[in-house]
Simulated assay, not measured.
Amino acid sequence: MTTTQTFNSWLTYTKPNPHASVRLFCFPYAGGSSIIFRTWAESLPKTVEVCSIELPGRGTQMKSAPFSRLKPLVGAIAQALTRNQFAPALLPHLNKPFAFFGHSMGAVVSFELARLLRKQYGLEPVQMFVSGRRAPQIPDPDPPIHALSEPEFIEELRRLNGTPEALLENAELMQLLVPIIRADFEVLETYVYTTEPPLDCPITAFGGLQDQEANCDELQAWREQTNAAFSLQMFKGDHFFLHSAQSLLLQSLSQELQQITSKIDRLQLNSD
């Protein structure tokens, strides 16, 4: 039997791996795209297939308008993961155990997506990896920045240290990027957390020791969002430690994913 994977502008499989035991969905930070994760498959176990989420306004979704609210964004991602025009009863991208990794904005998006999939399909990830983002029940202590004037907004981006200086100085490119990044910040800054039962999947939180956007206590509070195991790992670096400490982060991810896939493979062997 052969299978055909149809093009889906929301999803990027840089290294398709149909025999993988686990599919890892990766969610970018505000202003980021799937390109952040383009080399991750090379550093993770061969039992893991990496699928990056591409948000509107960038990459394969360059011509689509970005979302400015979380709920419709999460709903659209859920539809992209579950739709199959040829067999509506099947979930083509959720047809094997899956895990989520999200950094900053991506952590909030993946968390709310996990809650939505639980509600609508009775499905949960086997593991949640949340990175560089305080727990969702903690209100944002900072004033919103998405409506600032362009010079003030760009200065905030400079302070966060996630946008290369050469890009910030390029007025033509920033004219294209600022509306997308503004929309992403609006998604975060208008998000209202609602109380629901904790997830049943384990959560691992990652943080940067010098990150002023999410400190150790704020990351530790993710523990409240799971009925299963919780762990926290801190790395040297600021909010964008996933770049500066990427090799250590991927090493940690590899170890956890290897344990997950080994467990899944053992369970499958026992059931055969």
Rank of each mutant, 00 (worst) to 15 (best):
G132C: 06
F7I: 09
S9Y: 03
Y121P: 00
A229Y: 02
E169F: 00
V50N: 11
F240L: 12
S149L: 05
S33A: 14
L116D: 01
E224I: 09
F98D: 03
S110D: 01
R118N: 06
F129W: 02
P88D: 00
L117R: 06
L94M: 06
P136T: 09
Q127N: 08
E256D: 10
F230S: 02
T39C: 09
Q5P: 08
L269A: 14
P92Y: 05
Q61W: 01
V48L: 04
E156Q: 14
N161L: 08
S131C: 12
C201E: 02
M1E: 03
E165Y: 07
P16Y: 14
P151C: 07
Y13E: 13
A214N: 08
G57Q: 06
D272K: 11
Q233R: 12
L232M: 06
T190I: 05
E156K: 15
A166R: 15
T190K: 07
G57W: 08
E155R: 14
P28G: 06
V108K: 13
K96R: 15
S21N: 05
S131E: 01
L199A: 09
T60D: 11
M234G: 12
S34L: 07
G132L: 10
L24C: 00
L219R: 13
R38C: 08
P97K: 09
V192S: 13
P56Y: 08
F86K: 14
E224S: 11
Q246S: 12
V178T: 08
E213I: 00
Y121N: 01
S244F: 09
F230R: 08
A214P: 04
Q255M: 07
V22Y: 07
F25A: 04
H243K: 12
K15C: 11
P92G: 09
Q258G: 12
Q259H: 15
S68H: 13
G207Q: 11
G237Y: 07
R266Q: 15
R38F: 10
L250P: 04
L167A: 08
A107H: 12
G59V: 07
G237K: 11
D140V: 00
L232R: 09
A76L: 02
Q210F: 00
F101V: 00
E213Y: 10
G59N: 08
T163I: 01
G237H: 12
D265M: 11
Q5A: 15
W10E: 02
M62S: 12
L11A: 02
I203P: 07
R23Q: 03
K119G: 01
M105P: 00
Q120M: 10
G31A: 11
R69I: 02
W10P: 01
L90R: 10
I260A: 10
I35A: 13
